[in-house]
Structures are given as C-alpha cells and as structure tokens.
C-alpha cells in the first residue's frame, strides 16, 4: 500500500510555501472567483504560478481548486483557466460541477481530478457516478466513518480522500446543498483580474456569510422561540487515522485556506508527524492527545473569529473595500 498524501491549504502564497516547507505532499490553491472562498483566501494567477514553481522545485504538487458551479456563460473562461494552470505544471484540479469535470478530463487527459465536497455526495453510488465521469479521487463527507468508507471501496474504484475532521457534526449537514446565504444577501464583485461575479460562494462570489453559524430564533406555530445555531461543527481528528489508512484512503486533507498561516503551519507539521508515524507502523495515537487538544482549541477560536468577520460583512457589506476585489 502506498503512503497516503497530506493535502494542505494555500490560501495565500505565503501559506502555500509554508505548507510545502512543513511537509505537505500537495498544496491546493484557488484562483480569484473560482474557488468558493473570500477574496483574501484566493490567489492571483501570478501567485498560483509562483506556488506551482515553489512546490515543483521541492518535489511537491499543486492542485488548483476550480470548484465553483460556474455560470453556463463562463465555461469558456473556465476551460482557459484549466489549460493555463495545467500548462504551468499544476498536477490536478479540485472540481464540483459534473460538466466541468467532464470538460477538464477532455482538455487535460493526464491530469488528476478530485471531486470537491461541494458535490454533496451522500452514498457510495455517487462515488461511482463520478468515477465513471472521469474523476480520480473523491472527498468523502465529514460524517462518514469506517463503514461507509469500506462500502465505497467495494462499490467504486475511485480514490478516496477524507478531511481531517471527526464526525461529530449535528444540525444542518448539507455541503453542496445550501444556498441560504445568497437567498438572503450577496453583492457583485469585479476581481482585479476582471472576473465579474455575483450570487453565492457556490458560484464564485466572494462570500458565503456562514448564516448557519450565527444565532437564529427557531419557533414552532404553537410554542416559544428558542435561540439556536443551525449547525455544530466537526473538530480536528486523529484517532481514526490508522484505520482510515488501512482502508486505503489515498489523501488526507487539512481545510482552512482562510485560517492564519501560523495555524496551518502547525497543523501540517502535526499531521505530517502523525502520518509518518503510521507509515512506520505506529497505531497508538494517544501520544498526540495534548498536542491535538491545543490545536483543536486554536482551531475553534480562529473559526469563531472568521464567522464574526463574515457576519459583520453580511450586515455592513458595502463598507469594506477589499484589496483584491471591488464591490460593484
């Protein structure tokens, strides 16, 4: 069995280089307006090229995240972007839209295609659909555990990727099946590279306001309202790693392009150490308990800060003048 790859985020060029330095096998980066993240967590083409060069010189790879659901009017631009990055040496793409997957497979036959979490798969047959379409790897839902992973291995030959999160979520668990944010509010953007976007983050506009993570009043027809959040998040995981590796998971993904670089640096360092240990035969993860607890606490704090920023933008969205994009 080959060792699984550690995928790390490159929300900025600095973060991408740091992740490479700390031992990530693959760094993923998103172009402005094409990767479902706010402007400050996406990169210009110049930075993407620099990240590809930096990783390539050190024997590492870059995947480019093109995981928006593009407009049907944008498909020519989408195709040009994919060919451009492949020409620069990007080894693969992370994609959501089935038609876009099919398009990239035709344009760049030898590239590696990961199916993004935005595809919203819920069962093993979904994985087989994407394999038949030409995808190489599929990211599995946060909540999936040993049973689902094993079953998917039986149903489909597609490569499996998991987030480094535990399956403790409750509430509205709906990756790829949510347009709440854009129903409530969005603004149009013109990126410095000229891409004009509107609608939800699904479509490349800059902001999912994370409305699921703020406080709501929930009320039944006959009853008092209660204060509630729509979703409780997963947390960083570790214990499951050895068995997931044993089951043949091909890639482990750290999410967090919007986190501080220092946080990503420490996460890459931590999971590199854990995966190397497993490759050397280690199965007892308890030695990492304290380190993991500290990282979990930091993750939670950073996530809270991030949600506050996004909610603030939702409420005052004409106020900010972002550096890499202009609100129209």
């Amino acid at each position: 069995m080959s060792n699984p790859a550690l995928l790390a985020p490159g929300g900025t060029l600095d973060m991408a280089m740091t992740a490479v330095d700390e031992g990530a096998d693959i760094v993923y980066v998103g172009p402005l307006g094409w990767s479902r993240r706010p402007y400050e967590s996406e990169m210009t083409d110049d930075d993407i090229r620099a990240a590809i060069d930096y990783a390539g010189e050190r024997g590492r790879q870059v995947r480019v995240v093109l995981n928006t659901f593009p407009s049907p009017f944008e498909m020519d631009d989408f195709a040009r972007k994919a060919e451009l990055y492949a020409g620069w040496g990007a080894s693969g793409f992370i994609v959501t839209d089935p038609g876009a997957i099919s398009l990239i497979r035709r344009l760049v036959p030898d590239t590696l295609i990961h199916v993004s979490i935005g595809s919203g798969i819920t069962n093993s047959w979904d994985a087989e659909f994407y394999r038949e379409l030409g995808a190489d790897v599929i990211i599995l839902p946060y909540r999936w555990d040993v049973e689902e992973i094993a079953e998917t291995r039986c149903v489909s030959g597609i490569g499996l990727e998991t987030f480094l999160f535990e399956t403790v979520q409750t509430g509205k668990i709906c990756p790829g099946k949510c347009i709440m944010s854009s129903y409530l509010k969005f603004r149009e953007w013109l990126d410095i590279e000229g891409k004009d976007t509107f609608g939800s983050a699904n479509r490349g506009a800059k902001e999912c306001y994370r409305v699921c993570q703020t406080n709501w009043e929930f009320s039944a027809e006959h009853g008092d309202p209660v204060q509630i959040k729509l979703r409780r998040d997963a947390r960083l995981m570790l214990e499951q790693l050895p068995v997931f590796v044993e089951l043949g998971v091909k890639c482990f993904k750290i999410s967090g392009r919007e986190r501080p670089t220092a946080m990503i640096r420490d996460l890459v360092r931590f999971y590199r150490k854990a995966l190397d240990g497993i490759a050397a035969g280690q199965t007892d993860m308890s030695v990492y308990v304290d380190e993991l607890a500290a990282l979990r606490a930091r993750w939670t704090v950073e996530k809270r800060k991030r949600v506050d920023v996004l909610m603030d933008r939702a409420e005052h969205c004409a106020d900010a003048a972002p550096a890499l994009a202009m609100a129209r």
């Binding site: 593009p70 839209d97 089935p98 038609g99 876009a100 099919s102 595809s119 919203g120």
Partner: peptide
Amino acid sequence: VFGNLYTDATARVV
C-alpha cells in the same frame, strides 16, 4: 432541484 444543475455541460452529462 437538489441535482445542482448549473451548466449546460452538466445537462449534457445527465
């Protein structure tokens, strides 16, 4: 509606 149909490219796939 939850088939996430955004593009004619995907319409041709399905």
